[in-house]
Design a protein around this nucleic acid. Structure first.
Length: 348
DNA sequence: AAGTTCTTATTAC
DNA sequence: CTAACGGTAATAAGAACTT
């Protein structure tokens, strides 16, 4: 007893949209979409977050904004106000880190907290989770959901089950029962492509986690490489990854999608230089290992060109000199118009 | 043959 | 009718190139 870890996963409910509702209470009860400008259904971006009323229309995060507009033209569409969300996020994490400093931020609205040293059992862990929910609500007037279990994967799955505005504790003895009947994509790291491969190997239309238990570790590794070995354990509710407090960035980059696909090299270079300038601001004085230039053509085909070299990011000029020729190669290699360009520096 | 660099694919939020 | 699809970052795998 007391051998297992106690990991808590906190996820803010429909974060960006909930903040907008808080700022504009008249929006509550109406479908609300935060994301790109829909421009009468012609916008190019995607939905960042939407509230539950919007979800009733089939709108979801990551969906093209044009499609969400067709589903609910009467919805309220708001632009992303990132500096506000960042401020709220910092405040929420300040509250959360009082629970335990062993906290890993996953994004602006999600974190894992290792509370193994703070509680004796899962009953106490549930109390800690409820307290955190209360404190976030008091401080920021926002709700979140919380999952608690013996590892990060199970805490995240529990949190998913708790949404919205709930808490779910999955003690070790219940882990298998909880995940057995779930979809393969419930396992973090399994997306549409991996699911398809597993579906083929299992010869089943709608395989569940319990079906995947028939695959040996070797079979999974042959099919999916290193990740396959991890999935073998994850299917069994095992995840030994630790809660990591500070992950330092390994790269910093910026991308831009044009309003309209273009081959106008004047415009392309102008935008590109501003991307490099933005990256320079963020990566100033960092030790750089190399750069990557990205280009997406009008047909969505995406390519990268990369150069390795070590330097300290002191001026923009060297980076222009190294990267602009790579960008121009994309224009020379093909007659297609460009949809997106990007610049990234690898650091360390 | 080994080590490094470059490119693509996949995933997540 | 089909396609529609941002921005940022990590990680893995394999190809291509160097030493």
């Amino acid at each position: 007893m007391g051998k297992s870890r106690k990991i808590l996963h906190m996820d803010m409910d429909y974060f960006f949209a909930q903040i907008e509702e808080r700022e504009n209470p008249q929006f509550k009860g109406n479908p609300l979409v935060v994301g790109a400008d829909p421009k009468k259904g012609k916008g190019r971006g995607v939905v960042s977050t939407c509230n539950y009323e919007a979800r009733k229309y089939g709108i979801k995060s990551g969906m093209p904004i044009s499609r969400s507009y067709k589903l609910a033209p009467e919805a309220i569409f708001l632009p992303v106000n990132m500096s506000l969300y960042k401020k709220v996020s910092d405040s929420v994490f300040r509250v959360a880190s009082k629970i335990s400093p062993e906290m890993e931020k996953v994004s602006l609205d999600e974190a894992y907290i290792d509370i193994t040293k703070k509680v004796k059992n899962y009953r106490e862990a549930e109390g800690v989770g409820k307290k955190l929910k209360r404190e976030i609500l008091k401080k920021e007037k926002l709700t979140c959901s919380i999952g608690v279990s013996k590892n990060k994967m199970m805490a995240k799955i529990a949190c998913e089950l708790a949404k919205p505005d709930g808490i779910k504790v999955v003690p070790p003895g219940q882990v298998t029962g909880v995940i057995d009947g779930m979809d393969l994509e419930t396992v973090p790291g399994i997306g549409p492509k991996t699911k398809k491969l597993l579906k083929e190997v299992l010869k089943k239309e709608n395989p569940k986690i319990k079906d995947a238990l028939s695959l040996s570790k070797e079979e999974l590794m042959d099919l999916l490489g290193k990740r396959g070995g991890e999935f073998y354990h994850k299917f069994r509710g095992i995840d030994d990854s630790s809660v990591v407090e500070k992950r330092k960035a390994k790269s910093i980059g910026k991308e831009h999608t044009f309003q309209k696909d273009t081959r106008d090299s004047k415009e392309i270079i102008k935008v590109f230089k501003s991307l490099v300038g933005d990256v320079y601001r963020q990566a100033k004085d960092k030790r750089v290992k190399g750069i990557t230039v990205v280009c997406r053509y009008e047909d969505f085909e995406t390519h990268t060109k990369q150069i390795s070299f070590e330097t300290r990011m002191r001026s923009k000029e060297l980076f222009y000199k190294k990267s602009v020729p790579l960008l121009l190669k994309f224009l020379m290699q093909s007659n297609k118009k460009l949809r997106l360009i990007g610049f990234r520096v690898m650091i360390k």
